[in-house]
Amino acid sequence: MSFDITSVFPYWLILLKGLGITIAFTSSCAVLGSLLGFTVALLRISPNRIVQGITSFYVQFFRGTPLLIQLFWVFFCFPVVFRIAIPPYASVVISLTLYMGAITCETFRGALKSISGEQHDACIALSLPPQAKILYVIFPQALLRAIPPLLSNVVSLFKESALISSVGVADLMFVGQSISNATAKPVEFLTAVAIIYFLVAFPLTRLVGLVESRFLKRFAY
C-alpha cells in the first residue's frame, strides 16, 4: 500500500463542508450548554436540598457516562420512551448541549464561589432584585473568571463532536470515513481529518493560555 496524500486534494471542499457542520454544532451547543451550565450552577448552590440533589445527579450522570452512550440513548431510546420522533440533527444538539451543560456547571460553580461576599452584601444594600443581581452583578464576574476553563471545554466539545458521525450526521469525521471507504484510501483521508482537527483545536488551546496569562489575572481578581 502506497501513501499518497495528494489523493485528498480533490475532496477538500467536501471535507471543509463537513468541518463547517462540525463547527456549527460545536459553537451552537457550546453557547446553549454554557447557558444551561450557568443555570444549573445557580441551582446547585441553592439551599433547597431537593434542587441540589436533582442538579447534582444530572451533573454526575452526564460527566460520568460516555458521550457516545448519551448520543445513542437520545437517538435510539428517546423516541421509543417518549413516542416522539427526533431527527439526527436534533438528537445531536440535545446530547451535546446536555453534556456541555454538565461540564460547564462545575466551571461556573467554582467561579460563583470565588465571588466575594461583599458583592452580595452590596446588592442587598442597594435593594437589587434577585434577577438584576444575577444578570448585572454575578453573571459578568462569573463569566470573566470562567473564560479559560470554558474555552478548554469548547475545545473538548469540538474533539468529542467527532462521535456525532455515529448517528449519521455528515460532520467532518463522517465525511472523511465515507470518502475513505469509497476510495479505499483510509490512511490518507483519516490522516487528513486528524490534521484538520488539530489545526482547529491547537490555536484554541493556545488561546486559552494567552487569555489566562495576560488578561484574566489582571482583571478577574
Results as ranks from 00 to 15, higher is better:
Arg49Phe: 02
Thr55Phe: 11
Gly64Met: 09
Ser114Phe: 00
Glu212Ser: 04
Val80Gly: 01
Ser213Trp: 10
Arg206Ile: 07
Gln52Arg: 11
Val208His: 09
Tyr136Cys: 04
Ile45Arg: 12
Ile164Thr: 04
Val193Pro: 14
Ile94Glu: 01
Phe25Leu: 10
Asn181Trp: 05
Ser152Ala: 13
Ser114Pro: 02
Ala122Val: 13
Arg206Lys: 13
Val40Met: 06
Leu172Ile: 05
Ala30Asp: 10
Gly101Leu: 05
Thr183Gly: 03
Leu98Val: 09
Thr104Leu: 12
Leu19Tyr: 07
Ser2Trp: 15
Phe76Lys: 02
Leu157Thr: 05
Leu67Ser: 08
Ala194Arg: 10
Phe57Trp: 08
Phe219Tyr: 15
Ile14Lys: 10
Ala41Gln: 02
Val40Phe: 11
His120Ser: 09
Ile5Leu: 15
Tyr99Gln: 05
Gln70Gly: 10
Trp73Phe: 15
Arg44Phe: 05
Gln177Met: 11
Thr26Glu: 13
Cys29Lys: 05
Ile138Val: 13
Phe76Val: 13
Pro203Trp: 01
Lys159Asp: 12
Asn181Glu: 10
Gly168Gln: 10
Ile84Glu: 08
Val137His: 01
Arg145Leu: 07
Cys29Pro: 06
Ile14Asp: 14
Gln177Arg: 15
Ala182Trp: 09
Gly110Glu: 00
Ser34Thr: 15
Ser7His: 04
Val187Met: 15
Tyr99Ala: 06
Gln119Arg: 04
Phe198Glu: 06
Leu172Ser: 06
Leu144Glu: 03
Met100Ala: 06
Ser161Gly: 08
Arg145Pro: 04
Leu163Phe: 14
Pro203Gln: 07
Phe9Lys: 11
Lys113Thr: 13
